[in-house]
Design a protein around this nucleic acid. Structure first.
Lengths: 109, 109
DNA sequence: TGGGGTACTTACCTTGAGGTGGGTGTCATG
DNA sequence: CATGACACCCACCTCAAGGTAAGTACCCCA
């Protein structure tokens, strides 16, 4: 399954989940607890959230710190690699910001 | 269906097809005919290729020039907006290039 | 005592992106 | 005369990503 054709391919594989860009954007602002993320990403289910978090963790993009408490407390944050990914995504984000109106319009036909 | 949450969201919606990054990368080198693309993207089917090309065309990323000839000749190229998208993707591509080995390794477990 | 918050997991189902394989029409070439 | 190149379209199928709903375990607070 690994073995990518090019770098862009690999990057898309990492950020290609439905909610992953939003998760990374949220975590780039500051670390968050699970519940905070769930509330911020309106519409995501608990299952899918933990799923995507697990994948990002596996890919080395985010850290998962478990605070051994009751009630449970889990904090997610970007790894150094996650921070570099976030910066790399920024230019794409800028592009989208500038063209999203045009894209929305184009898709209404 | 339109209405994006953020710019990154919009950009991912545009480049989020399985073959779209590769198509854009190919077209950024130089315009291509349908058959040239099909041969270059090993493994893609004709249906999916034309499908993704139609979507990129609808989003204003590529041009489709039909040369009224026999046999048919259709040439695809990036629009100005496509060129800017390509530049925006470059940094993501660089990131992927640098980390693809780590990602591949992480995914083998 | 029971409701709510915490962070999950499991089983099940739906949806759509992508893949497969066929058909279209024209012309050059063997 | 029929095969192949060209750029498609159409009907069908598959599979995995994502969504839904329920259950787990612990504690606090009213």
């Amino acid at each position: 399954m690994p073995e990518f054709i090019c770098g862009l391919d690999a990057a898309v594989a990492v950020i290609g989940g439905k909610w992953k860009p939003l998760i990374l954007w949220a975590l780039s602002v500051e670390p968050r607890r699970t519940g905070e993320l769930r509330r911020e990403l309106e519409g995501i289910s608990e299952k899918v959230l933990t799923q995507q978090l697990r994948e990002l963790e596996r890919d080395g993009i985010i850290n998962r710190e478990v605070h051994q408490e009751v009630p449970p407390k889990v904090v997610y944050s970007l790894t150094p690699m996650g921070v570099t990914l976030d910066r790399a995504m920024a230019s794409l984000g800028d592009w989208g910001e500038q063209h999203m109106a045009a894209i929305s319009a184009a898709r209404r036909t």
